[in-house]
Structures are given as C-alpha cells and as structure tokens.
C-alpha cells in the first residue's frame, strides 16, 4: 500500500509528460493519468493517476467534495480534465468529441447517484432506452432483455411502473438494470448505497458482486460507505485534497498508518474540527 501524508493545500502543477497509453500486456482497462481539474478557484484534482485493470473492482473513497463523482464523469468524457489524460484501453478519451465518444460510451454502464431515471418514462422504457437507441433489436427482443435485466436486479414485474412509484432502493436497482442493458464491459457506480438502509445497501453490494461474477465486468465504485467498500473492492483508492493519498487492499486500509485514512475508515472526525465545534457555544 502506498501511503502519503496529505500536505499543504494543493496548487495546480504542470502535468507529467509520462501519460502514455497503457501497454496491452498489462491488461489495464482504464488509465487516469496525472489529472488536473479546477472549478473556478476550487482545485478538484491536482495530479490524480489511477489504473484500473480488467475485471477488477476498484473502489474510490474520499470525503464529500473530493471529486469522486467528477472522476467517474472524466472516465466517460462527460467532463474533461484541464490537463492530464484518460485512456480506455489504448484509446485516449479526453480528446475525443461527442461523436468520437459514442462507441466508447456504449461499452460502459453508468449508475448515477440519484439513479437519473427518466421520470417521464416507465421502468420498461427506461431500460429499453439504450437498446432502442443503439441496438437494432426487434421490440420482442427488447421486451425479453428488459425482463431479463430486471430479473437480475430482482425487480421483474415492475415494467409498467413509473420511477416516482418506486422506493429509493428500487430506483437504484432499476438504474442498475438500465446501466447493464447493453452488457457493458465496464460499470461505473456513483454512490450506489447512499441514502439506503443497511439491508438495501447490502442488496446493492450483492448485486455488484453478482454482476462482477456473472458478467465479468470491470467496476469502478465511488462511495464513502466503508462497509460497502470493504465488501465489493478488489482494490481501494482514497482521494483527498486533489490527490490519491492511499491505494491498496481492504486489509491495507484497515491497518493503515496514515491518520487521515484511519479516521476515514473508522468514521472519526478530525480533532481540530471537533475542538472548533466544542468551542462554538449553543445559542
């Protein structure tokens, strides 16, 4: 495990020149290389580099606001870095235009934090959407595939429901069914368990594991739910202050010497923040 103590507030630096496409023999599915990104004065990435290997499940951890969701959006070109490079296999993604990105995006499934289901469409139409857009499937095959994907997430029979009629956990599962509608190579999960009770969270975790086993997908999961992270991760990466501050297996994180990592894993507040809280008097 590579631990590095977070230092002073990050300043944008020049990107490294070594952003080469990953060599095929290393079986790197996604490479994020020396990413720099800022929104106005806020620096989100200050040299983030992560490799995701084929069929691996990488969990990206980090406190709220560290750019975890932004990281996922960079992978499929929904956002572009100020500098650095994003590769899907040996193809550079961040320099492609929207049309160039289409064939790459078809190989991804993206589970958004709130599900992002189209609220004017039924569950059936939501899941059928990518099939109708890209596959030349006859409607009978679309129907069968929708039923099969819904069965995978344990929701067959909900085809005629509208998203507003579903609970939070059901919406996430429908969104997951939509994300895997075209049998993607890679599934990106943005906070898949946020807002769910522990039992529903565990169902989602089991689904992620099931998809990894049955569909042999590569997964990138963004979360700050440690129980979920430890359950699904082959490898964990922690972001803080625009950098990767820790990377390793679940046990490496549990036994980390890095104070920030330990506090995050154990769910302990920063002593300085606690002291400030205690100094502030209640009205």
């Amino acid at each position: 495990m590579s631990d590095s103590q977070p230092t002073s507030p990050p300043q944008p630096s020049a990107p490294s020149a070594a952003c080469e496409p990953p060599p095929p023999e290393k079986q790197i599915h996604i490479r994020l290389c020396d990413l720099h990104k800022r929104f106005g004065p806020v620096v989100v990435f200050n040299g983030v580099s992560i490799d995701v290997f084929e069929r691996e499940c990488v969990v990206v951890l980090g406190p709220s606001g560290t750019g975890k969701s932004v990281l996922l959006k960079h992978i499929v070109g929904l956002m572009r870095p100020d500098s650095g490079a994003v590769y899907f296999r040996d193809q550079r993604v961040d320099t492609l235009d929207e049309q160039g990105l289409e064939p790459i995006r078809r190989r991804f499934g993206f589970l958004f934090q709130g599900g992002a289901l189209f609220d004017s469409m039924t569950v059936y139409d939501n899941i059928a959407f990518p099939m109708r857009e890209h596959g030349n499937f006859p409607e009978s095959e679309v129907r069968d595939r929708v039923a099969s994907k819904l069965a995978m997430v344990g929701l067959d029979g909900t085809q005629t429901k509208m998203p507003a009629e579903l609970s939070g956990g059901m919406r996430k599962r429908v969104a997951l069914a939509r994300a895997i509608a075209l049998d993607p190579e890679v599934v990106l999960y943005d906070e898949p368990t946020t807002g769910l009770d522990p039992i529903r969270s565990d169902i989602i975790n089991e689904l992620i594991l099931k998809l990894n086993d049955e569909l042999h997908v590569t997964s990138v999961v963004v979360t700050h739910d440690m129980a979920s992270a430890f359950k699904v991760a082959d490898r964990l990466v922690m972001l803080s202050d625009g950098k990767v501050i820790a990377e390793g297996k679940a046990d490496d994180f549990r036994n980390s010497k890095n104070e920030e990592v330990r506090r995050f894993v154990e769910g302990r507040a920063n002593p300085e923040e606690l002291a400030a809280l205690n100094r502030a008097k209640a009205p």
Partner: peptide
C-alpha cells in the same frame, strides 16, 4: 422540464448511454 433533467443528471445519463 429540461432544466430539471439536467439538475437530476438525466441529461448526463443520456450522454453516458451514448445518446
């Protein structure tokens, strides 16, 4: 309608599905 779709990431979801 479209603004709400943008805010709730439905437009991003569409782009992510290569639509």
């Amino acid at each position: 309608e479209l603004g709400t779709m943008r805010v709730t990431e439905q437009i991003d979801a569409m782009r992510a599905m290569a639509a």
